[in-house]
Amino acid sequence: MTALLETSDLTLAYHGRTVLSDVNLTLAPGEIVTIVGPNGSGKSSLIRALIGALSPAKGHVTRKPGLRIGYVPQSLAIDPSLPMTVARFLNLPRRIGSAQVAETLRQAGVPDLARHQMTALSGGQFQRVLLARALLGDPDILILDEATQGLDQPGTAQFYQQIETVKRQKGCAVLMVSHDLHVVMAASDRVLCLNGHVCCEGTPEIVASAPAYRALFGTGTQGALALYRHQHTHSHGPECDHTHEAAE
């Protein structure tokens, strides 16, 4: 089984400042991998490097030849001066038929929106339209960057159920960045915990009990609440053999 995406010693920087160092990540077909980490831990930078929007400062990103990526951004601000129906939006940058528009909207769970204006959609509808767009072209991998930001709890839960349904039907791999740890972790094959570097990784159970993860997120269901009180002085368990210098 060849990897869809692979990074080797990937280091990323903005304006000369290193935001993420030495990431070695391999994504196999059909896998669900979740990336967690506090704000500014390099999650979004990693995603942008994977889709090719950010060049590595060091190391490589290797994509399987002909890899099809479906990308769902964190949010999308459409200027009110730009009139855009859902159907037209889905026809960018390549024209697809109205049958395919209807099909992809159905898969994303919003079958009746084709003629609506993008700016008139609710938050949940909007994210599903972004999902519908990502599903066009039958992606090998869906990449979601905090796609439920701005949704309430039921909306978030429903969105992730939709992702699971899509994944079951299409068999694509899923890589997602999330704040909603308790919602996402259970469905993931693997969790990657970032904080300027890979703090720890493994199955949700292993990561949830890893000292590095607990130092970042606390324990139990209060984990998500500890997100913004992240300590830079946390210590690593024996399974982590790296230091913290690179992240600071």
């Binding site: 889709i51 090719g52 990308y71 999308l76 026809n91 960018l92 940058p93 024209r95």
Partner: peptide, 19 residues
């Protein structure tokens, strides 16, 4: 036209779609 519209909507999404 289409590529310009995509890039206008979202540079990152355009990039992921090959623009």
């Amino acid at each position: 036209w289409s590529a310009l519209l995509s890039a206008t909507l979202s540079p990152d999404m355009a990039r992921a779609a090959g623009v």
